[in-house]
Nucleic acid binder design. Structure first.
Ligand SMILES: [Mn+2]
Ligand SMILES: [Mn+2]
Ligand SMILES: [Zn+2]
Ligand SMILES: [Zn+2]
Lengths: 141, 141
DNA sequence: ACAATCTTTACAATCATTCTAAACTACTTG
DNA sequence: CAAGTAGTTTAGAATGATTGTAAAGATTGT
């Protein structure tokens, strides 16, 4: 993502293109699927020599989420995750390295879902497939 | 759950039957499915006129979980939940009142799950079906 | 009863996150 | 460009859930 397209993206969403937002937009919206926490993103920008406060990371992640540029994922580890894939989808969660991998909604079929209780409607379905390392074969070691 | 059966249950799991553990076991293992947080359980025992510290609630919930009497559920709201249903199962989560309802694993069918990445195995699958209140019919109001 | 071990508890500490208010920056208008 | 206004950033305090610490208290085996 170029500086110009970051500016445009921010303007389109009524966010002033500040130095901080430009840096975060450049990191996040490079076209690849990204899953970040506030801390992981803070570390990434620090590694690039850019200084910006953790409070700004939180502010910006929330603003990007509010305008629909990011989606929040809860229930993975202890922190909130933010996802550049805003389509409805599911996740592999690798517990050995805390990595998330997208699973397109279309590649899982959920059937026989029970009816919602009276007066309630289904708001969404979240599937998390936990992954761990295949154990080494104990019989041959 | 009677005092005697609570004592037995605790002894079977190598936990000394203290006043505090007896009270919590009586509340939790009454045969019905229960989903509690440390705070909600603390409030419940306080309502029964029993005094015990929040630290003990946490200690006891973890001990019960370690011996297989409870299962921990993460990703619901901001706090950890503990579940007396230790079978593999899924949940409705009613976002309007923070209530959990069990969905037996057998009543959901998940198919076409993508293959795990190389060297990884599936450790488990968690499904959370978010519920909200059915909106009032806006066309007739 | 005694000693050993385990348990409870008050309180401090931690961690992710949010709040606050003052300093700073961007945008608009003259 | 200058000034005014509104929006933004930031350090640091506050919050809320949870965990750690260490001393006091309870349970168990002898
Ligand atoms: Mn958009
Ligand atoms: Mn058991
Ligand atoms: Zn994703
Ligand atoms: Zn359950």
């Amino acid at each position: 993502m170029t500086a110009n397209s970051a500016t445009d993206l921010l303007r389109e969403h009524n966010l002033r293109p500040t130095r901080q937002r430009m840096a975060l937009a450049a990191l996040l919206f490079d076209g690849t699927a990204r899953h970040v926490t506030a801390e992981s993103l803070h570390d990434q920008v620090k590694d690039m020599g850019i200084t910006l406060s953790l409070a700004t990371i939180y502010n910006t992640l929330h603003q990007f989420t509010n305008v629909g540029l990011l989606k929040e994922i809860k229930g993975i580890g202890d922190a909130k995750w933010f996802d550049t894939n805003i389509d409805q989808h599911h996740h592999f969660f690798d517990i050995s390295n805390d990595h998330l991998i997208d699973i397109p909604a279309s590649s899982i079929t959920i059937s026989h879902l029970p009816a919602s209780p009276d007066g309630k409607v289904i708001d969404g379905v979240d599937v998390i497939v936990r992954l761990s390392d295949k154990s080494p074969d104990k019989s041959s070691g």
